[in-house]
Design a protein around this nucleic acid. Sequence first.
DNA 1: TTCATACTTGTAAACGATTACATTCTTTGT
DNA 2: ACAAAGAATGTAATCGTTTACAAGTATGAA
Lengths: 335, 335
Amino acid sequence: MDRKTATIQDVARIAGVSTATVSRTLSKPSVVAKSTREAVLDAVAETGYRVNATASNLRRQRTGTVIVLLPNLANPFFSQILAGLASVLTPAQLGMLIADTQSGPDPEERLRHYLTSGQADGLILLDGTLSPEALAIPGRPPVVLACEWMGHDLPSVRVENARGAALAVGHLARLGHRRIGHVTGPRGNVLTETRLEGFCAALQELGLPLDDHWVLEGDFSMDSGAAAGRAWLGMTDRPTALFLSSDEMAIGFLGEVQRAGIRVPEDVSIVGFDNIEIAQHLSPGLTTIRQPRTQIGVRAAELLLAMIETGSLTGPSELIEVEFIVRGSAGVPPA
Amino acid sequence: MDRKTATIQDVARIAGVSTATVSRTLSKPSVVAKSTREAVLDAVAETGYRVNATASNLRRQRTGTVIVLLPNLANPFFSQILAGLASVLTPAQLGMLIADTQSGPDPEERLRHYLTSGQADGLILLDGTLSPEALAIPGRPPVVLACEWMGHDLPSVRVENARGAALAVGHLARLGHRRIGHVTGPRGNVLTETRLEGFCAALQELGLPLDDHWVLEGDFSMDSGAAAGRAWLGMTDRPTALFLSSDEMAIGFLGEVQRAGIRVPEDVSIVGFDNIEIAQHLSPGLTTIRQPRTQIGVRAAELLLAMIETGSLTGPSELIEVEFIVRGSAGVPPA
DNA sequence: TTCATACTTGTAAACGATTACATTCTTTGT
DNA sequence: ACAAAGAATGTAATCGTTTACAAGTATGAA
């Protein structure tokens, strides 16, 4: 058909109107007369015109992009969140620029860069390790935190992390466990700390002992879960149950101890966090705490969208419920 | 400091030169005199000026974006490929717009849309289900296929899929298996077909029987692997080993049969495909075929980058080697 | 008839960069 | 000393939209 893509000028000429009218027809159809609207739409169809997003963005002083900053793109936990984000952002004509903080040298510097570069209309931050101080930049775009964050009133989407930990402890206690261990995420991470606090508070409430040796530090990865498994195997005074701060770590732990001949849940009970897809396909199925990841993405995107449209830097936060999922990996303690 | 972000005009004024000189200083420093260059760079530093990518793109008739089209964002298999893509595209000032074909109704229509909308300087296609006919669009941007694709000379990054299947069959045959089954991906998908062909050819070459009942159709997902597991459990004439076209399916299969009391590899041997991270953390570890996913992403991005820079619609293809990974899930057949 | 009001539409100035072309100032060879 | 070539810089058009403002037309009330 057309050698080059049609511009708004072409459409205007063919429809016999001005470019202003074409633009209006496309953005606010209600303000143009029905007959003109039809003529314009016909011309659009005839030329196959599509608005040039770059020109539109330039004129409207926006970028058409939001940046999503997450710790590690290769972590499957985030892919569903991304899917949720995309489902809201794409219809709003916003592209997602995805960047991870681990690939570069200085994550906080990266964050600062994105905030100052003016390359985005907004930013969604999924990394709980970055300190919120880095957000104190004048003229920055709106930011939504899609993870727990303490002591700041920035808009965020969080899940009931402490409650999730309490649910896990409660379940294990009800099964009869009195020696319950915990594998944390990386220290300093807000998710780590919140879940750890929830864990300790729940133990205390139930009058259960807390041994420092039973709290192992991980980093949410399967490898660190496997390392925790080796540590557990080497203990003289093993807890009979463990709550792990991520399903990935639970998987690593499970595989490691199973390969050492330990039976789950007969010899040790484990509870994970996240309910990633694979949890139900393990043997035994992984008892865990479900986070609705797609929903987290959707809500974060909606929050950000509202801020972008109103030009506001603040907004409401959202607390998303968790749900306890009982499968086979937690049972009664060994006799 | 500045209420608004500085423009090239501000820099020009402060440096006492024209905007043309500022632009040249930033893009081709060699053509401006040393003294002016320094003055300009000082002014840039003073104002904190950063070029407005939108304006630059508009003038240069590009978009600064490449679209990555994949079947399903929530599939962890793709996240590492994305990481590889990002590591090349980001330094080249290109953002990635990630879209999945499964969320909308008509994937081919989506593809056509992206190709005609002029919203991207290039496109990377990771979905082997889409037919290449949809690419026959005049004036479309360069495209790189990052998956197997038959009968087309479009630039692509592929892995040795058929050889991977042959490696799996060879390994199982060497262990003594004579009744080997296969769980495929979705029919019509090029990966599915190529691996199936490789599987059949290898069986034939080794003089092993091929029973149609032993070839089950899956869709690469864990759920479909679990379904295949149930189908296998219900067979009267079970194969002693199975090659599954994805690790995810292998995981689903493994969990399903293990929960039914089947021991792996004593009762049945399984081999997967992909070597996703979790493969090594299962119990038993999953014997599989490794695809270097980050590398696939990196090479695809490099290919596309070269095409964008030369303005060419064709380019070389790349074949990436696979590697057989021996773990515990395949052993000698039961007596 | 006449004026106010509401509707439509057009005019033209941005948005912020890039770059072809023109201009000015140096060199350098003869 | 002068023309030609080269180097450095400036001028201004351009990329494709959006939108404030102006201008025109129709409608209805007085």
